[in-house]
Amino acid sequence: MNTDTMNQLKTRLKKMIVERLFLAVAPADIADDAPLMETYDIDSVALFELVVGLEDEFGISLEDADFQVSAFQTVNSMADFVSKKAE
């Protein structure tokens, strides 16, 4: 995945995060490397919403074997995860 495509993916991910978690921040204000769980108080229920969001909006289905909470640490790690799953 080239840099432009990766940046577009991160933009979409940020929009999804803001929408799904009803966050009162602009998507662009989320830093790529900000620790999401600590910064936005993401608990298990919210994290589950992101999993559903990946499936609904990115067509990513999470099999048991490849699920790791660490993939949701930052926008960067989420983008890596999505791009690998999309390959």
């Binding site: 099999e63 048991d64 909470v69």
Partner: peptide, 17 residues
């Protein structure tokens, strides 16, 4: 099927957190 996968993810999230 999607529902079952989501339930499994929910369980893993809690266990890993």
């Amino acid at each position: 099927r999607s529902f079952l996968m989501q339930q499994s993810a929910k369980k893993q999230i809690r266990a890993q957190l």
